[in-house]
Amino acid sequence: MAQAKLSREDDHVTVDARDVYYRQLNETLRGLVQDGVGHIRLEHVFGQRYIGTNLARPVDIEIDGIPGNDLGAFMDGPRIEVHGNAQDGTGNTMNSGRIVVHGNAGDITAMSMRGGAIFIRGDVGYRTAIHMKEYRDKVPLLVIGGTAQDFFGEYMAGGMVVLLGLDLAAGEFHRASFIGTGMHGGAIYIRGEVQDYQLGKEVGVQGVEGEDRRRLEEAVRSFADHFDLDAAGILAGNFRKLYPKYLRPYGTHYAY
């Protein structure tokens, strides 16, 4: 395994991650952040896990390549931009910060996420936004440019998820099933078509108006800014909001 090679210019540091084991890479990043470096560029990233997990301060990290699983797991502050695809577990139990992925992301993206924002230009895998939650002023935001797989937003307890379906062909449906099963908080905004059977039975469907519309526009504009897209064009699409019908989906489940 190689040592990470660094080149530094003011508080911008470039790290060559080629052949560097993830533990060493993350240790290197941690040392840089502790030294007060504000901008880090990671080059030749190839599957290294947990990037951003152990960084305590807000720092900008740009990634060229494909970061490994659990990108930004438990992350609290850093801003990560990936020029490539991300793997599984992106933003797992993330507390604050931002992750921008210019490609696709894998399964369990934003699982149990509590705060911060994640923007994925392409598609996401299975179980995305499972058990996302919110707490006081911490309302996580996940915007997906493409589509998602099954169990999308299952057990969702808070936060805001936007699924844009930008790459669906005309008349093509989103693919996910069991959307929002057991959902008891938060909101999912979907652009493009889903059929009723794809939705969990705890989910209600309504149009997007008023405050909902304002929140949605804000999220879409923020998304579009990251990827140089036309926000107005996206917003012109047909949106629906999925919301939890019950705060207590299993209130009558038990005999006391």
Binding site: R127, H131, E134, R248
Partner: peptide, 21 residues
């Protein structure tokens, strides 16, 4: 309890059967 679990007051706190990751 809500503060400690970091969830809104009065909502069910559901722990799914598996950890989905």
């Amino acid at each position: 309890v809500a503060e400690t679990r970091m969830i809104p007051v009065g909502t069910d706190a559901l722990s799914p059967a598996p950890q989905h990751d």
